[in-house]
Design a protein around this nucleic acid. Structure first.
Lengths: 104, 104
DNA sequence: CGAATGCGTTAGCGTACGCTAACCTATTCA
DNA sequence: TGAATAGGTTAGCGTACGCTAACGCATTCG
C-alpha cells in the first residue's frame, strides 16, 4: 500500500485535504480551486482514498468526498512520532535566539 | 529554492533528521545507519543544508552535521499551518469513535 | 614523503510521479 | 430518447527523484 507520508509531499494533495476540512465536496467543486485538469484531481482523490485519508459518498451523479477521521488521526500520529522531544527543544532554542535579537 | 515539505517526503531524510536530533554527527557515522551508499547520504545532507534544516561544521577531515534550530522551527511552522482546527476536530471525533467501540 | 581516510561532485541509470488527452459509464434533464 | 453532466479509467509524456559508480580534493597518519 501507498505511504501516508506521500500524501503531504504534494502541494495539490495538501490543499485538497485543507479544502475537505471545510466539509464534503464534489470533484468538480474541488477542481475549481486548481489549475490542473479534473482528471488530475480525480487521481489525487483516488490516491487519498487508497491511503484511507478520505472517503466518497455517491449521490445521484455526484460523488461527495470527505475526510476520514481515522485517516486524519493516523496522519497526526505520523507527525507526532516524527516530531521528537529533541526537535521541540531546538524550536525553543530558536525562539530564544529570536527573542534575544529582538531585545538588542 | 527547494521546498521544505520535500524534506519529509523521503524516508531516509526523515531518519537523518531524527538521528541529528541526538546531536551532531559525521557523514560516516550517519551512513552507518543506512543501507545506501555514503554518497547518497551526502547528497541528502547537502539538500537538507540547502533548505536550511541543518548545517555543517568542519573539523579536520570530518564534517559534523547538526540541526539548525531556525530550520526546525520553520518546519514546525509548516506543520502547524497545515494542521488546521478542522483537522483537530476530526481527530477528536475519531478518538471518540474508538472510545465507543472499546465500551461496546 | 606516500598511503589512508573523510567527504563532496558529477554523470548516468531506473523508476516513480504528476499531468493531459481521450475515452467510457452512469445519471439526470429536456 | 437523446443531450448534457459528473466522474472514473487508461495510455503515454516529460521530468524529477534517489541511487550508484567513479573520481577529485583535503587532511591525517605511518
Amino acid at each position: 500500500m501507498a505511504d501516508l507520508w506521500e500524501v503531504i509531499s504534494d502541494s495539490n494533495r495538501r490543499q485538497l485535504v485543507q479544502l475537505l476540512g471545510q466539509g464534503e465536496k464534489t470533484v468538480t467543486q474541488l477542481s475549481a480551486h486548481f489549475p490542473v485538469s479534473r482528471s488530475a484531481i480525480s487521481q489525487h482523490l483516488l490516491f487519498l482514498v487508497d491511503v484511507g485519508l478520505i472517503r466518497a459518498r455517491k449521490e445521484g451523479r455526484n460523488r461527495y468526498y470527505s475526510l476520514n477521521p481515522e485517516g486524519v488521526s493516523k496522519l497526526q500520529g505520523l507527525f507526532e512520532r516524527f516530531w521528537t522531544n529533541e526537535l521541540d527543544l531546538l524550536v525553543a532554542e530558536a525562539e530564544q535566539l529570536h527573542h534575544n535579537k529582538g531585545e538588542m
